[in-house]
């Protein structure tokens, strides 16, 4: 068997037409398709936002349509810095591998993995705070001790105007009956935010600091029409927020898996074919920079606008 006949051309050396070796050209094509994937989701975001009835974006009762009414800008800015740094460490890894400094290359690869884990941890805290914040909708104003505690918002629908009575807040305790069914929730409602002005504080947790503004309410399942956390089902905005950042997070996880694989097996590959290993890190890097690039757009679009 002659090895030459079965060897795939341009596996290592660049093709004269594209000036890329196969793997690099392939990863660029893959990224082109990724652009279309995120493009379709961005487009859906714009469509949903343009079509959202007034007063429901990002969530019912928000004073403005900006995402940071309910999202945490400082954490996301921190994540932006983390991800950009991880892009740079990825580059350094490739740079030192090309310089023939294997252990330094691996060190920076490890840094990239650690930074991406940091990104995921921050993301976890962000998600967690959303999932523990609740929106409750009522058919009629909620009156406790003769005082109306719910707010209302009116917006147009297909059947004419629709008024939603709602509350945002946290469940502090769930009381169940002996059969295990929920009897009532103890619910700490957020203080009403002013409908004007700009609340740039951490939107996710503003409820805590003002929890005293309302007494704890006992909410029975029969009291409300709908209760949902600020998770995907909370509003169209939280839905697209979770979808976009979730999909992006999956891309991060995928990248981490690949990098950990290279951390574990890189040594033996490096001994046999050092250039090929450097090429693989370059391809991983291209993917990683793309994931970074997507976040660079996700951050302003979801959090700041």
């Amino acid at each position: 068997m002659s090895a030459a006949a079965t060897e795939i051309p341009y596996d290592m050396e660049p093709h004269p037409l594209t000036r890329m070796y196969n793997g690099k050209f392939g990863i660029w094509l893959f990224l082109a398709s990724e652009i279309m994937l995120f493009g379709a989701l961005f487009s859906s975001y714009v469509l949903l936002r343009v079509g959202a009835p007034e007063g429901t974006w990002p969530i019912i009762g928000a004073p403005t349509v900006l995402g940071h009414e309910i999202l945490n800008v400082p954490l996301a800015a921190l994540n932006t810095v983390i991800l950009i740094s991880s892009s740079v460490t990825m580059l350094m890894s490739w740079y030192y591998l090309k310089e023939n400094k294997f252990s330094r290359g691996q060190f920076f690869l490890l840094m990239t993995v650690l930074l991406s884990c940091g990104f995921l941890v921050v993301k976890y805290f962000e998600y967690n705070s959303k999932l523990h914040h609740y929106l409750v909708e009522f058919d009629a104003p909620l009156v406790v001790d003769g005082e109306q505690v719910s707010y209302s918002r009116t917006y147009p629908t297909a059947e004419g105007e629709r008024t939603v009575h709602y509350l945002h807040g946290h469940i502090t305790e769930t009381v169940k009956d002996e059969d295990g069914y929920v009897e009532y929730y103890k619910f700490a409602a957020d203080a009403r935010k002013p409908d004007h002005g700009h609340a740039h504080d951490d939107g996710a947790d503003h409820g805590d600091s003002h929890a005293g503004a309302h007494p704890e309410i006992e909410l029975r399942p029969s009291d409300y029409r709908r209760m949902s956390n600020w998770g995907p089902a909370g509003s169209t905005f939280t839905g697209i927020y979770f979808t976009l950042t979730g999909l992006h997070g999956l891309h991060i996880v995928g990248g981490v898996v690949v990098m950990v694989y290279f951390l574990l097996t890189g040594g033996s590959m490096w001994k046999k074919l050092p250039d090929k290993y450097a090429n693989r890190i370059e391809c991983t890097g291209l993917y990683w920079h793309f994931v970074d690039l997507v976040w660079i757009f996700l951050f302003p679009v979801l959090y700041l606008l």
């Binding site: 594209t18 050209f25 660029w28 094509l29 082109a32 279309m36 493009g39 487009s43 859906s44 469509l47």
Partner: peptide
């Protein structure tokens, strides 16, 4: 690769016209 990405960007813009 420029041509391929340009094509991609063109279709991306088409998609953004959906709304």
């Amino acid at each position: 690769i420029f041509w391929i990405l340009a094509l991609c960007v063109l279709f991306f813009i088409t998609l953004l016209l959906l709304p």
